[in-house]
Design a protein around this nucleic acid. Structure first.
Lengths: 158, 158
DNA sequence: TATTGTTATACTCTATAACTATA
DNA sequence: TATAGTTATAGAGTATAACAATA
């Protein structure tokens, strides 16, 4: 059984149908992402960070000596775009770039104390943002959500 | 109890830590989105459609006579960007733009038979794409995922 | 030859400002 | 005065191509 769409009178009185897009997981994913992303963006903007720069810093802090190409792969970013991120971090003295001794093509990236401290602030800011926006989800639901999202991510290598 | 990050030797032998970004729902959301989105993009590209254009068509088909501004609100897009979408759809004769009689500022958008047929093909193409990428999720898991995503989306009005 | 870092450039989606015609 | 559609433009994130230095 099916229903034909009802013609509209142009006055906006009838409720709008969502359209076929709603059937897709990808669309629902995007709509949720568009809630969390701008909020996280605003949170780190107060610390003069962009999201890609924050992400880069967060990986460098946990992996002292990491090379730009490794960082790029870890974040699924292009090397050319990672360069810009590292430039930002180095200019602000949040990260140091030192030449590798074993392979002189490479750089070793290390977070400064200042970088670590700023990361802590940024993490706290995004946490506050997500806490507010994820209020309707229990801790179990949030864990389940991440689990399901990670299954999709893992499917990319199939 | 905590562990200090282990310094790297620069040869890429040690496994890389994910970084603090992984704790955030937003990051996991993005990673999953970056799997589904390019796949959907490739699917509709075979029909010479962009994702925003496909989305617009899908809403117009289900809401004959809808106005551009209503379409923009339904898809959370700017009116200025919706104009481009409608231009594409009208040029390809997938949608007709006719002046409203009750309010001459408005247009009534209606999908042509050709538009409806193309939408069916596009929907089928994205379905195939998602079926492949969501294989690791049961139907119940997919439903649960959408439910949780929609809770996040609903939080944007809090 | 292949890889690392780099630069320059282009592309997509999204956002903002200003204009016109109608209301 | 407010709204609908429109145009032009800018922004952010991402992607591609080419190059020098090094392996």
């Amino acid at each position: 059984m099916s229903f034909d769409a009802m013609p509209r009178n142009g006055d906006g009185e009838l409720p709008l149908d969502e359209g076929a897009v709603r059937e897709f997981v990808g669309y629902n994913l995007k709509r949720a992402y568009m809630v969390l992303y701008p909020a996280a963006q605003a949170a780190v903007a107060e610390l003069d960070l962009r999201i890609p720069t924050f992400s880069g810093l967060s990986v460098i802090v946990r992996n002292p000596g990491i090379a730009p190409s490794e960082l790029a792969e870890r974040l699924s970013m292009e090397r050319s775009n990672i360069v810009v991120v590292i430039d930002e971090l180095e200019t602000r003295e949040l990260v140091t770039r030192t030449k590798s001794k074993t392979d002189r093509r490479r750089f070793a990236l290390t977070a400064t104390m200042r970088g670590k401290r700023l990361l802590d602030k940024a993490v706290a800011a995004i946490r506050r943002s997500e806490e507010r926006l994820l209020q309707r989800l229990t801790a179990e639901e949030q864990a389940k959500l991440v689990e399901l999202l990670n299954k999709i991510e893992a499917a990319s290598t199939d």
